[in-house]
Simulated scan of single mutants.
Amino acid sequence: MKAIQYKAFGNSDVIEVAEIPQPEISNENQVLIQVKAASVNPLDIKLRSGIMQQIRPVYLPFVPGADIAGIVVATGEKVTQFNAGDQVIAVTSAGGYAEYALVNESRVALKPANTSFEEATSLVVNIGTAQSVLFDEGKLTKGQKVLIQGAAGATGATMVQMAKNAGAYVIGTVSGQGIALVKSLGADEAIDYKLQDVTALVKAVDLVADCAGGESQNKLFKVLRPGGKLFSIVTPPSAELAEKYQIDARFISSNISANSLTCGLALVKEGKLRPIVAKTFSLEEAAQAQDFVLAGGVNGKVVLVVAQ
């Protein structure tokens, strides 16, 4: 089968299209999926660069890809929820940039019928991460105030919608065309961080969900109420500032499974959460796709179309 591999650590020129054996079911709980679409995530780029080797080592040659959408081809003997022909989405530890992928049943869910494969794969990591940050860890409830930094990005846009559906007051930091997008998703306020001072406009926030990182993260402590929470999916917040402002500040690493997608997928099926696909590339264009993500300023998800 055709797959994308990293032949070495480095820039996008280490990415190559390769012919490798199609995976075969070797575990009674596995599901074999013909991949129709795969998301391009910042994690794929970090793994390619080699900077994650101490905390998440990979061995070369490596097939990246953390979330996919496709059609079930075969199942292990103990798989009960899926059958050949089912259209599904799945979370993979690796191997998504390929024509076929093996996934444990616990990490597979039925694709919402009202989404394309490209839209469906764009939701997986976003929903799981939003669920972890906003609700599992953030305990966000109706009437609370949440600020989402990087609200027009793939995960941020999903957070906006899930927080709003939970009855929270939602503030998003964005720039340029992201302002109109975030407002269209239901945000109560959209602040252009390039033109406006967030700390002068926002106070007494219950939760900050940081999807952007960078130097601006330190400023976000000032917008929280004492006892509030600052959770980042990019870089660990300052422990010193957390103590100074009496804030629960942590880096959140999402452990995404089919169960973590339940609430978000229900919203998708009801038409209350819409996927945002910024751009699609073919599987063979994986290097260009990753460079596009790395350049920044992407509103929504970048997706590889693996098979028509």
Rank of each mutant, 00 (worst) to 15 (best):
V268H: 02
L241N: 03
G264D: 09
K244P: 00
L283C: 02
A242S: 12
S254L: 05
L220G: 09
K272A: 07
P226H: 13
L267G: 07
V268M: 04
G264N: 04
S232I: 12
P236F: 12
G228F: 14
I256E: 08
V234E: 12
A242N: 05
T280F: 04
E285P: 00
F251V: 05
N255V: 12
I256W: 02
P275E: 00
A266H: 09
K272T: 08
L224C: 10
E270A: 15
F281V: 02
L220V: 04
G264Y: 09
T235M: 13
R225S: 15
E284M: 10
K244N: 07
G271E: 01
K244W: 01
F281H: 07
K272Q: 13
L261K: 03
R274S: 11
T235G: 03
V277K: 01
T280D: 02
D248Y: 13
S253R: 14
A287G: 13
Q290C: 02
E243I: 00
F251K: 11
Q246S: 15
Q288P: 05
E270P: 08
A258S: 12
Q246L: 13
P237R: 00
S282V: 03
T280G: 03
L241Q: 08
T235K: 13
R274E: 10
I233F: 09
V223H: 10
Q290H: 13
L265R: 07
A266Y: 03
D291Q: 15
S232H: 08
